[in-house]
Protein backbone atom coordinates (compact mmCIF):
# COMPACT_ATOMS: atom_id res chain seq x y z
CA UNK A 1 0.00 0.00 0.00
CA UNK A 2 1.29 3.47 -0.86
CA UNK A 3 1.32 6.42 1.53
CA UNK A 4 -1.90 8.51 1.47
CA UNK A 5 -0.01 11.79 1.54
CA UNK A 6 2.97 11.52 -0.80
CA UNK A 7 1.69 8.52 -2.77
CA UNK A 8 5.31 7.55 -3.39
CA UNK A 9 6.60 5.53 -0.46
CA UNK A 10 5.27 2.32 1.04
CA UNK A 11 2.88 3.08 3.93
CA UNK A 12 4.28 1.63 7.12
CA UNK A 13 2.17 3.47 9.67
CA UNK A 14 -1.56 2.79 9.90
CA UNK A 15 -3.75 5.02 12.04
CA UNK A 16 -7.40 4.43 12.83
CA UNK A 17 -9.34 7.33 14.31
CA UNK A 18 -12.80 7.07 15.73
CA UNK A 19 -14.43 10.47 16.24
CA UNK A 20 -18.11 10.63 17.19
CA UNK A 21 -18.55 7.03 16.10
CA UNK A 22 -17.13 7.76 12.63
CA UNK A 23 -14.13 5.71 11.68
CA UNK A 24 -11.35 7.12 9.51
CA UNK A 25 -8.21 5.33 8.48
CA UNK A 26 -4.94 6.76 7.26
CA UNK A 27 -1.89 5.00 5.91
CA UNK A 28 1.35 6.93 5.92
CA UNK A 29 5.02 6.41 5.25
CA UNK A 30 7.54 7.22 7.99
CA UNK A 31 8.43 10.60 6.44
CA UNK A 32 4.87 11.84 6.10
CA UNK A 33 3.96 10.54 9.55
CA UNK A 34 6.87 12.49 11.03
CA UNK A 35 5.78 15.64 9.21
CA UNK A 36 2.24 15.19 10.39
CA UNK A 37 3.31 14.56 13.94
CA UNK A 38 5.46 17.70 13.82
CA UNK A 39 2.57 19.80 12.53
CA UNK A 40 0.11 18.32 15.04
CA UNK A 41 2.49 18.88 17.87
CA UNK A 42 2.90 22.56 17.13
CA UNK A 43 -0.83 22.87 16.75
CA UNK A 44 -1.27 21.39 20.19
CA UNK A 45 1.53 23.47 21.54
CA UNK A 46 -0.20 26.61 20.39
CA UNK A 47 -3.44 25.51 21.89
CA UNK A 48 -1.85 24.84 25.23
CA UNK A 49 0.90 27.46 25.38
CA UNK A 50 1.00 29.75 22.39
CA UNK A 51 -2.54 31.02 22.46
CA UNK A 52 -2.54 30.97 26.17
CA UNK A 53 -1.52 34.56 26.90
CA UNK A 54 -3.76 35.93 24.18
CA UNK A 55 -7.06 35.85 25.89
CA UNK A 56 -8.59 38.16 23.35
CA UNK A 57 -9.11 35.35 20.82
CA UNK A 58 -10.94 33.05 23.12
CA UNK A 59 -13.14 35.74 24.58
CA UNK A 60 -12.84 34.39 28.07
CA UNK A 61 -10.70 32.08 30.10
CA UNK A 62 -12.63 29.17 28.65
CA UNK A 63 -9.77 26.81 28.07
CA UNK A 64 -8.25 27.55 31.40
CA UNK A 65 -11.28 25.96 32.95
CA UNK A 66 -12.05 28.53 35.58
CA UNK A 67 -15.41 28.33 37.22
CA UNK A 68 -15.20 31.89 38.49
CA UNK A 69 -14.54 33.65 35.23
CA UNK A 70 -16.08 31.43 32.66
CA UNK A 71 -19.55 30.58 33.66
CA UNK A 72 -22.33 30.57 31.08
CA UNK A 73 -24.74 31.23 33.86
CA UNK A 74 -23.31 34.69 34.40
CA UNK A 75 -22.93 35.46 30.74
CA UNK A 76 -26.58 34.91 30.02
CA UNK A 77 -28.38 38.21 30.43
CA UNK A 78 -31.77 36.61 30.94
CA UNK A 79 -30.58 34.55 33.89
CA UNK A 80 -28.44 37.34 35.19
CA UNK A 81 -31.40 39.69 35.27
CA UNK A 82 -33.70 37.07 36.71
CA UNK A 83 -31.36 36.09 39.49
CA UNK A 84 -29.83 39.48 40.19
CA UNK A 85 -32.65 41.91 39.43
CA UNK A 86 -31.06 44.67 41.50
CA UNK A 87 -27.76 44.51 39.72
CA UNK A 88 -26.20 42.72 42.67
CA UNK A 89 -23.84 41.09 40.21
CA UNK A 90 -22.12 44.43 39.78
CA UNK A 91 -20.54 44.03 43.15
CA UNK A 92 -18.56 41.01 42.16
CA UNK A 93 -18.14 41.37 38.44
CA UNK A 94 -18.53 44.97 37.41
CA UNK A 95 -16.51 46.62 40.13
CA UNK A 96 -14.39 49.34 38.61
CA UNK A 97 -10.75 50.10 39.26
CA UNK A 98 -10.89 53.68 40.53
CA UNK A 99 -7.55 54.53 38.91
CA UNK A 100 -8.04 53.37 35.31
CA UNK A 101 -11.74 52.52 35.10
CA UNK A 102 -11.20 48.86 34.17
CA UNK A 103 -13.83 46.31 35.20
CA UNK A 104 -13.10 42.64 35.78
CA UNK A 105 -15.42 41.75 32.91
CA UNK A 106 -13.22 43.82 30.64
CA UNK A 107 -10.15 42.02 31.89
CA UNK A 108 -11.91 38.76 31.17
CA UNK A 109 -12.42 39.81 27.58
CA UNK A 110 -8.95 41.21 26.89
CA UNK A 111 -6.75 39.26 29.29
CA UNK A 112 -4.91 42.47 30.21
CA UNK A 113 -5.10 44.60 33.34
CA UNK A 114 -5.52 48.35 33.03
CA UNK A 115 -3.02 49.63 35.61
CA UNK A 116 -1.04 48.72 38.72
CA UNK A 117 -3.98 49.54 40.99
CA UNK A 118 -6.12 46.82 39.32
CA UNK A 119 -3.97 44.27 41.13
CA UNK A 120 -5.26 45.65 44.44
CA UNK A 121 -8.88 46.18 43.40
CA UNK A 122 -9.24 42.70 41.90
CA UNK A 123 -6.90 40.96 44.33
CA UNK A 124 -9.48 38.29 45.15
CA UNK A 125 -9.92 37.34 41.51
CA UNK A 126 -6.27 37.74 40.52
CA UNK A 127 -4.80 35.63 43.29
CA UNK A 128 -6.26 32.27 42.16
CA UNK A 129 -5.67 33.21 38.52
CA UNK A 130 -1.96 33.89 39.00
CA UNK A 131 -1.63 30.75 41.08
CA UNK A 132 -3.09 28.71 38.23
CA UNK A 133 -1.13 30.43 35.46
CA UNK A 134 2.19 30.47 37.24
CA UNK A 135 1.91 27.52 39.59
CA UNK A 136 3.07 29.65 42.48
CA UNK A 137 2.21 32.75 44.45
CA UNK A 138 5.47 33.20 46.32
CA UNK A 139 7.31 36.01 44.58
CA UNK A 140 11.02 35.46 44.20
CA UNK A 141 13.25 37.90 42.44
CA UNK A 142 14.49 41.43 42.17
CA UNK A 143 13.08 44.18 44.32
CA UNK A 144 13.21 47.88 43.44
CA UNK A 145 15.68 49.62 45.72
CA UNK A 146 13.41 52.51 46.66
CA UNK A 147 10.37 52.64 48.90
CA UNK A 148 10.42 49.01 49.97
CA UNK A 149 13.38 48.90 52.33
CA UNK A 150 11.95 46.48 54.89
CA UNK A 151 10.63 44.16 52.21
CA UNK A 152 13.96 44.15 50.48
CA UNK A 153 15.81 43.27 53.67
CA UNK A 154 13.38 40.46 54.45
CA UNK A 155 13.88 39.18 50.95
CA UNK A 156 17.63 39.29 51.28
CA UNK A 157 17.45 37.35 54.52
CA UNK A 158 15.36 34.68 52.83
CA UNK A 159 17.89 34.29 50.05
CA UNK A 160 20.85 34.22 52.43
CA UNK A 161 19.12 31.50 54.48
CA UNK A 162 18.79 29.37 51.34
CA UNK A 163 22.48 29.88 50.66
CA UNK A 164 23.28 29.03 54.26
CA UNK A 165 21.42 25.71 53.94
CA UNK A 166 23.32 24.96 50.76
CA UNK A 167 26.63 25.77 52.44
CA UNK A 168 25.84 23.51 55.39
CA UNK A 169 24.81 20.67 53.09
CA UNK A 170 28.04 21.15 51.14
CA UNK A 171 29.94 21.20 54.45
CA UNK A 172 31.38 24.61 53.58
CA UNK A 173 31.39 25.80 57.18
CA UNK A 174 33.57 28.83 56.64
CA UNK A 175 31.06 30.20 54.17
CA UNK A 176 28.19 29.20 56.49
CA UNK A 177 29.66 31.28 59.32
CA UNK A 178 29.99 34.36 57.08
CA UNK A 179 26.42 33.90 55.88
CA UNK A 180 25.12 33.43 59.42
CA UNK A 181 26.76 36.70 60.48
CA UNK A 182 25.32 38.52 57.47
CA UNK A 183 21.84 37.25 58.29
CA UNK A 184 22.19 38.31 61.91
CA UNK A 185 23.29 41.77 60.89
CA UNK A 186 20.30 42.19 58.57
CA UNK A 187 17.90 40.88 61.20
CA UNK A 188 19.29 43.33 63.73
CA UNK A 189 18.77 46.19 61.31
CA UNK A 190 15.16 45.06 60.77
CA UNK A 191 14.51 45.00 64.50
CA UNK A 192 16.12 48.39 64.88
CA UNK A 193 13.85 49.78 62.15
CA UNK A 194 10.79 48.23 63.74
CA UNK A 195 11.88 49.52 67.15
CA UNK A 196 12.38 53.03 65.84
CA UNK A 197 8.90 53.00 64.34
CA UNK A 198 7.29 51.78 67.55
CA UNK A 199 9.13 54.46 69.47
CA UNK A 200 7.80 57.10 67.12
CA UNK A 201 4.24 55.88 67.39
CA UNK A 202 4.35 55.62 71.17
CA UNK A 203 5.81 59.12 71.39
CA UNK A 204 3.00 60.63 69.35
Amino acid sequence: MLCDDCKKNEATIHVTNIVNGKKTESHLCQDCANKKEHADMFKQLHQSFGQFPKFSNSGSFGQLGSSIFDNDFFNNDFFTNAVYPDGLLQDSHSQRCDQCGMTFDEFNRTGKFGCDHCYEVFDQEITPLVKRLQGSLAYEGRVPSRGTGVFKTRHQIKRLRQELNKAIKGEDYEKAITLRDQIKQLEDSLHKDAGAKTDESSAS
Partner: peptide, 29 residues
Amino acid sequence: IDDAIESTYDYAFSEKFGYLTACPTNVGT
Protein backbone atom coordinates in the same frame (compact mmCIF):
# COMPACT_ATOMS: atom_id res chain seq x y z
CA ILE B 1 19.52 49.55 32.75
CA ASP B 2 16.65 48.51 35.01
CA ASP B 3 18.47 50.03 38.02
CA ALA B 4 19.20 53.26 36.14
CA ILE B 5 15.55 53.74 35.18
CA GLU B 6 14.34 52.76 38.63
CA SER B 7 16.65 55.32 40.23
CA THR B 8 14.61 58.03 38.48
CA TYR B 9 11.07 56.64 38.18
CA ASP B 10 8.88 54.53 40.45
CA TYR B 11 7.97 51.11 39.06
CA ALA B 12 4.64 49.40 39.59
CA PHE B 13 5.63 46.76 42.13
CA SER B 14 3.82 44.90 44.88
CA GLU B 15 5.29 42.79 47.64
CA LYS B 16 2.80 40.07 46.85
CA PHE B 17 2.99 39.91 43.05
CA GLY B 18 6.39 41.44 42.27
CA TYR B 19 6.59 43.59 39.11
CA LEU B 20 3.05 44.31 37.92
CA THR B 21 2.43 43.74 34.22
CA ALA B 22 -0.52 44.13 31.88
CA CYS B 23 -0.73 40.39 31.31
CA PRO B 24 -0.78 38.03 34.32
CA THR B 25 1.51 35.62 32.45
CA ASN B 26 4.39 38.08 32.96
CA VAL B 27 3.70 39.22 36.53
CA GLY B 28 6.48 38.57 39.05
CA THR B 29 9.95 38.97 37.63
